[in-house]
Each structure stands twice: as structure tokens, then as C-alpha cells.
Simulated assay, not measured.
Amino acid sequence: MTKNFNMLLFLYMTIMGTAMSLSANNWLIIWTGLEISVMSMMPMISNKNFLSSEASVKYFVIQSISSSMMMLGVLLLLINSKIEYQMILTSSMMLKMGIAPFHNWILEMIESVELTIMFFLLTFMKIAPLNMISYLMFKNNLFILISLLVGSMFGLNQTSLRKVMCYSSIFNLSFILASISTNSIWWLYMMVYSMMLLMILFLMNKMKINYINQLSLNENKMNLKMNIWLAMLSMGGMPPMMGFMLKLMIIQMMLTNKEFLISIVMILSSTLVMFYYLRMSFLSILFSSSTIKWKMLSTMKSSSWIIMVNISLMPLILTLKT
């Protein structure tokens, strides 16, 4: 993303559109804020990559369809129709966020955008739709189960780190949807997940890696490998990292609400997600590395900031949960 005044203007309008949707008290203003965010995001998606124009058009088409579905649901609500308007509104927001089974469009465009825009698409652009879903009383159990299965199983055979991050985003969004009735919990989950994703994308940009097999190269310094290793373990949910505490908090809440089926699927799918993050960590540290392993201890000082963030947030999350 080029650092010029045009991009700063589009970024400001994106933030203002989301803020408008979050602070609105009627559906029309929410729809207006969403449209401002979408129209401001489209120029930022376009870059020097020749596939970015196609990604921008795909983003515009999908967001237009979801906005049309949203307006249809609002009209059905206003005329007191017998048609289930909450299902239409919820489905439109699921399509806008790219949650399974409406996730194919974001997988196709994620390869051609910059990492900064990828971070915005996977985190910030989902806040306003999630806030709108929290206003509805529609049961999201079907979307939660499908997203858990798709995000965990389809990420196993991926070689692109971008697609792994995208499937991981779908998986984590299912946890957020499970806690959507409690604002304090899903907001905390979104903020901490955004922090973990930001660390991984920052290291991907610094190490210039886009595929899993590049993690085993010895060109990168050991401290960078240690950093991305710890960040991936946190994203996968390895205790005592902060990612584990987030998942434990949601599973405990689901057990309290007697949602035993979703809790079992959450636990089983979390093991699959942990598997492919562990596989990437092993590639980064253990395999195809000529570095003497006991010398890794001398690089811990340079990795201390990620260790501090991952481990020190665990008691804080426990405090906020109680």
C-alpha cells in the first residue's frame, strides 16, 4: 500500500464507516457505514500486482450482493413480513465477512493483496458485521459448526501461508460467533486475535515468506525463526500462550450454556488447527536447519518481546474473564 495522501484518506474513510456502523441506532445508518467502508477499501486493494484489479472487482461484487441481501432483510422487517428476516440479515453479514460456507471469495482474493490490506480484511472489516449480528436473536449454530470444520480441516493441505491464515481466521470467527451474545468476551477475543495475526503478518513481511516450505530456509536469522515459532504456537492455541486462554474461555462459556455438541467440535477441531501450526513450527526450527540447537538459547533476548506478550497476557485474560 503506497504511503500517500490518497491512501490515508481511504483509510480514514474506512475507519469512519466502521465507527458509523458501530454507533448507529437504526439499520439505514448501519448500511451506510458499511457501504462507506467497502467503497474506501476497494482502492486500497488495488496495487501494483496485476491480480489486484480482479480482487477489487470480486470484493465489490460480493459486498454488493451482501448489501442487497441486507436491505431486503430490513424491508421485510419494516413491512412485518412472515418471511424470516433475521436469517436473511444474518446470511448477508456472513457473506460480507467470508464465513463458511461463504468463504471462497476471500480465499481467491487473499493471494493478490498486500499484507496490510490482508490484516484489515481479516480483522477490522469484520467488526461492524459482527456487531450487527450481536443485535439479532438468530441462532448461529449451523454457521459455527461449518466454520469450525472448514477452518480446521481445509487448512491441513495448504502450502500458502496466506491461505493458512485465512482458514485460521474462519476458525477463530466461529469462536467469536459462539460468544456473540456477550459483548465483552467477543470484543476481547477479536482484539487479542488481531494482535496475534499482526505479529505473524509482521514477521512474514520481515522474513519475505509466503509459503510453508520457505520456513525451513537458513537465510533468516534464528531470532526471527523463534519469533514466528512462538507467534504460530500462540495462534494455534498452545498453552500457556494467550491463544490458548481465549479458546479455553469460549469453551468454558459454551459448557456453561450446555452447548455440548459445539464444545466437542471446538475441542476436536482445535487439535487439527494445533497440528498444522505445530507442523510449521517444526519446519521453522527443527527440520532442515544446520544451526546448533544449544545456540538457540543465546537468541532468546531478541525474542523476549513476543514471549512477554504471549505469556504475560494469560493472567490478564483470566482476570478479565472472571
Score class of each variant (00 low, 15 high):
I144D: 15
I144P: 11
I144T: 11
L145Q: 12
L145W: 09
I146Q: 12
I146P: 13
I146L: 13
S147W: 13
S147M: 06
L148W: 05
L149Y: 07
G151D: 09
G151A: 14
G151S: 13
G151Q: 12
G151E: 10
S152E: 02
S152L: 06
M153L: 15
M153K: 09
G155K: 06
L156P: 11
L156I: 14
L156W: 12
L156F: 15
N157G: 06
N157S: 15
Q158N: 13
T159E: 15
S160F: 11
S160M: 09
L161E: 00
L161A: 02
L161R: 04
L161G: 06
R162I: 01
R162Y: 12
R162M: 09
K163C: 01
V164R: 13
V164W: 06
M165E: 02
M165T: 00
S168H: 08
S168D: 03
S168L: 07
S169C: 11
S169H: 02
F171T: 04
N172L: 01
N172D: 00
N172K: 02
N172G: 03
N172Q: 10
N172S: 06
N172Y: 03
L173A: 02
L173W: 05
F175A: 00
F175G: 00
F175N: 00
I176R: 10
I176T: 10
L177V: 01
A178K: 09
S179G: 09
S179N: 10
S179F: 05
S181L: 04
T182I: 07
T182M: 06
T182L: 08
N183P: 03
N183E: 11
S184L: 11
S184T: 07
I185T: 08
I185L: 05
I185S: 05
W186C: 03
W186F: 06
W186L: 03
W187G: 01
W187S: 05
L188V: 00
L188M: 14
L188H: 03
Y189C: 00
Y189T: 00
Y189G: 01
M190P: 06
M190C: 14
M190E: 10
M191F: 13
M191T: 06
Y193M: 02
Y193K: 03
S194P: 01
M195C: 13
M196R: 11
M196H: 07
M196Y: 07
L197G: 03
L198T: 00
M199I: 05
M199W: 15
I200C: 08
I200W: 08
L201W: 04
L201N: 02
L201F: 08
F202G: 09
L203A: 09
M204W: 03
M204E: 07
M204V: 02
M204C: 07
N205G: 14
N205R: 13
N205P: 03
K206T: 11
M207T: 11
K208E: 15
I209L: 11
I209F: 10
I209S: 08
N210H: 10
Y211T: 01
Y211I: 02
I212F: 13
I212S: 14
I212P: 04
N213A: 04
N213I: 07
N213S: 10
